[in-house]
Amino acid sequence: MFDRSYLQNPFSTYLKWLITKIKYQSKYEHLRLGYMSKLINVVFGKYNWIGINVTIINSSVDDFSYIAEGSVICETKIGKFCSIGPNVRIAPGKHPTHTFASTHPSIYSNPYNLLKNFSKEDIFEYKKDVVIGNDVWIGANAIILNGVKIGDGAIIGANTVVTSDVESYAIVVGSPSKLVKHRFSEEEIDYLLKLKWWDKSHEWIQLNSENLCDIKKLINLNPLL
């Protein structure tokens, strides 16, 4: 197997990034891709910002969502208006913890990056998509494990390790993550989930930008039919 690291140098790395930046920013007019970020099979919405040294693989990022520097995101669907902090890890891959005598992937799968594999097929599902709702805030250094679903409006605290699904408008912290509280009352959460303001037109959001800063004012001025 040829060792591709012989071909790596500052110029070739820069050139690869530049080609990626031109390719994606030409396709997505309102995208800004940070220095030395890597994209493989990524779909964007509108007005997305990606920080420096971000890696995104086999994922989608919807309108207005941004990802800060150093984050690595794989196999993930990200909704609208999400704020993802620096050095976040999403769907980093997993290993079997019981039944299998070994946790090493060469035994139970056939990944391309290992020099030798003993399995000709993937016996263990080490990749599973993550789904992140709309208006989600993920703090710095958080880790979200494979297969997790995060509801709309949730907040993931810095350094949190999310091992299970997170409800809409929940605040979770810790390792493993634990529920601290919900951001609003049940009635207010139900209203927001029905309103789906993130799907409204830009004109509606502009008109209600001040109201979105006060949940009670938003409800009073925009009653649901």
Rank of each mutant, 00 (worst) to 15 (best):
D63Y: 04
Y108F: 13
S59R: 09
E187A: 15
G147Y: 03
F184R: 09
D214N: 09
D165S: 05
K77H: 11
I138F: 11
S71H: 09
K194M: 01
P96K: 03
D165K: 06
P176Y: 00
T55L: 11
G151F: 11
A170M: 14
H182C: 15
L195Y: 05
P96A: 02
S83L: 02
N141G: 07
N9F: 08
S26P: 03
I78E: 06
K128A: 06
L218C: 14
G151L: 11
I56P: 12
T103Y: 04
I215E: 08
I205P: 13
N58S: 15
L207G: 06
S83N: 04
V54C: 02
I22W: 06
W49C: 11
D214Q: 06
V180Q: 12
D190L: 10
S109H: 04
D129R: 15
L192Y: 09
S26I: 00
D62I: 02
G133E: 07
I132A: 00
L114T: 00
C74W: 12
I189A: 14
K27V: 00
I84Q: 01
V88F: 08
S37H: 04
W204E: 07
A154Q: 11
N117S: 11
T55K: 13
L31C: 03
I67V: 06
E29V: 07
D63G: 04
T163I: 07
G157S: 15
F11P: 08
I215L: 09
K194H: 04
I50Y: 04
W198S: 09
I156M: 03
K178R: 10
T55W: 11
E188C: 15
